[in-house]
Design a protein around this nucleic acid. Structure first.
Lengths: 200, 200
DNA sequence: TGGCGCAAAACTATGGAAACTTTTTTATTA
DNA sequence: TAATAAAAAAGTTTCCATAGTTTTGCGCCA
């Protein structure tokens, strides 16, 4: 029942943002009463927190799958590119910005977890890419891993990319495209060209 | 809630200076009402006072950390010097000096104008690079110009690049190196290689 | 028939948004 | 430079929506 409520809540949060969704909405969406919800959860904050955890776990799963399915660093980064592109949407932004503003503690926790996980994954990827000769040897993996994570923060920032002016998928594509081109070695470029042909 | 309000206030004070920030600003930033703020604090003066206390408490913490991490007096002095030097920035001075309201307008105008000027300049550069065949044709100049400006904001962001862990010049070099490698065409790479040789 | 579990509805308390009042700041003019 | 008006902001109040709690009614089952 708890899982059901969290799943249903996520569905609504993804559409409208956590702030705008009322407890009545959640109850109505699931065909249960608010009483039942409060029998399972302390308050709305707890639901949002747990929903955020589940959301994070889902993203983590995608990341792990991409890691598993990749034979080399270029493929991994490409898989992360393609898979992440499909997952981060305008509605993700609504949810993220909602958390930032109205649920700061939850957001801070989420952000820290995400940063740590993505950073470790990216760092590993960049290092193995250098070892494989696909990435340039003169790049600093730590700095670039942090930079790339930061680029996603910029993506969400209306000061840089107002929603009414830029298409989020276009921004993501440009960011990833630029990031990959910025680290590839000559060998890596050749590999990417070949790789793109085989997966097109 | 009080802590939340203080933290949020510090964020704004750091950006704009305490006197320039209105109670409406704080309420909007936090997604709460002024009523709620006044339920937790007597007046604006109290908020500024507490924010200042917290701010300097954080500074003190940094000093104590430097003290702890030092094995002898020389190292301590060095750490203190480096950490203090790294932490004092323009925004610190704004907060400490608590400049008049017009400063905010000037700062905002400066920031907006700076962004616009830099943006226009970058955009022009990217476009002519594409025309000259030195930059790839499939890049989006607007997005990349915004991205690059954002990257420099990340440079200053301690969440991504703590100053006690990364050297600013190293970060700048990596960012620029990555950015230029990310946009160059084959012809551009050849040109860059030749260019580097002639200016080495 | 009574107990149980749940939905729906009613209820209370509280915070947000907006309107309002008061005070301070700024701009204008003599 | 001082007086005055206007604008802006600090601080207060009102109304409403929602969170969270309690009550009522209903269906199901032993």
């Amino acid at each position: 029942m708890r899982k059901n409520i969290i799943t249903g809540s996520i569905e609504l949060f993804m559409k409208y943002g956590a702030k705008s969704v009322t407890m009545n909405d959640i109850a109505g969406h699931l065909g249960i009463s608010k009483k039942t919800i409060y029998q399972n959860f302390q308050d709305k904050e707890e639901i949002i927190s747990l929903a955020t955890d589940v959301y994070f776990e889902n993203k983590l799963k995608i990341l792990k799958e991409a890691e598993r399915n990749s034979k080399n660093a270029v493929e991994l980064l490409y898989n992360l590119t393609v898979k992440l592109k499909n997952r981060i949407s305008a509605t993700d932004l609504v949810v993220i910005n909602d958390l930032k503003k109205y649920h700061r503690e939850i957001w801070q926790k989420f952000k820290a977890k995400k940063h740590e996980v993505v950073f470790v994954s990216l760092l590993k990827c960049l290092k193995s890419g250098i070892s494989e000769g696909l990435f340039r040897k003169d790049i600093n993996p730590e700095i670039l891993a942090n930079l790339h994570i930061g680029e996603f923060e910029l993506l969400c920032n209306e000061d840089f990319f107002p929603k009414d002016r830029y298409v989020i998928s276009e921004i993501q594509e440009q960011i990833f495209d630029h990031f990959i081109h910025g680290i590839l070695s000559e060998k890596g470029f050749a590999f990417l060209a070949t790789y793109k042909q085989t997966t097109a």
